[in-house]
């Protein structure tokens, strides 16, 4: 950007000089950043065989696959037809292209989804309780001993770092195929994730109530129970609900490794290429996840509003 220069003003020339230098420095900086991003992209693409060729060859197959997800092959008819059609929309279970035909296994999915949600509820409750118990020894302001704080924190860190699907996969071996492995895996991960957040809330809590209770001779437990817990409960509940939303998502996929819920069924229908059931299950998962998000957001606002 060149501005009309007042010809012989030395301060103007100095400004031009410094401004130009600054601009050049910024341009070099952002230019080298962009170059680094592109270079890394190329290296990563070569490393993973992610070439434009494979992508172009794959692209039609993606379109084809998603097309199949939304079409059915009715008995007798050779060509696949769209999964829904306006004239048959509210036809019975035997009528192709109706909602009832598409979701003819609705009751099975609904039961599995209900199991999935219950897994998330139990895992969140267990994880929340464990995180609640562990968050106090992990808070440096409440505990004198550095070792206790350090050990608890590393434990929480470890619990949230191991991917929960991996943990579920491992736990399927001792606990057998079924929801239990998934629940424990999600609960362990929730403990780690919530423990850290609870701990941060504890750190921000006002210490004066604690001092007050200590000054009248309250034990450590009493200090925590009456000095800290009333302050942090709304935050704890709000974080736990947020975690519940995430856990519902996780429990929909934890079945991929055999750990219960709708994921097991989803993996089966994807594996056997039962296209219309794949899309039916995905739509139901999507709806339930969005519904729970909205509901939980409502409750979260209420909880914070009611308890603060």
């Amino acid at each position: 950007m060149t501005l009309p220069a007042p010809t012989d003003d030395p301060s103007w020339r100095l400004f031009q000089q410094r401004f130009g230098a600054l601009r050049r420095k910024q341009q070099i900086e952002s230019g080298s950043m962009a170059a680094a991003v592109v270079l890394l992209f190329v290296v990563a693409a070569i490393w993973t065989d992610f070439s434009p060729g494979t992508l172009l060859r794959g692209a039609p197959r993606i379109g084809e696959y998603f097309g199949k997800l939304l079409s059915i092959e009715p008995k007798g008819a050779a060509a696949p037809i769209p999964v829904l059609a306006l004239p048959h929309l509210f036809g019975g279970v035997k009528q192709p292209q109706s909602i009832a035909y598409w979701f003819y296994r609705f009751n099975v999915y609904a039961e599995l989804l209900w199991q999935t949600i219950q897994m998330a509820i139990l895992a969140t409750a267990l994880g929340g309780a464990a995180a609640f118990a562990l968050s106090f020894p992990a808070t440096g302001t409440f505990v004198r001993s550095r070792t206790v704080v350090f050990v608890t924190r590393r434990l929480l860190e470890f619990m949230r770092s191991v991917p929960q699907v991996v943990l579920a996969f491992i736990l399927v071996w001792p606990f057998g195929i079924g929801p239990l492995a998934g629940i424990v895996a999600i609960a362990v991960h929730s403990t780690g994730a919530l423990g850290k957040l609870f701990c941060e809330l504890n750190e921000n809590a006002d210490t004066r109530p604690v001092d007050g209770i200590r000054s009248v001779g309250g034990s450590w437990l009493a200090q925590m129970r009456y000095g800290v817990v009333p302050q942090v409960t709304p935050g704890f509940l709000s974080y736990a609900l947020l975690r519940f939303e995430m856990n519902v998502r996780s429990s929909t996929i934890i079945g991929f490794v055999g750990a219960g819920g709708i994921g097991q069924e989803l993996k089966r229908v994807i594996g056997f290429n039962i296209y219309e059931e794949v899309s039916a299950i995905c739509i139901m998962i999507l709806l339930i996840v969005v519904a729970i998000d909205l509901l939980s957001a409502q409750i979260r606002h209420r909880v914070i509003g009611a308890l603060v």
């Binding site: 992610f50 494979t54 794959g58 084809e64 696959y65 996929i253 993996k267 994807i270 995905c282």
Partner: peptide, 18 residues
Amino acid sequence: DQLIWALVFVRAMGLGPI
């Protein structure tokens, strides 16, 4: 979830990082 998308893309494009 990403894992569901991944499963769908594996069926559509074959095994592999893509």
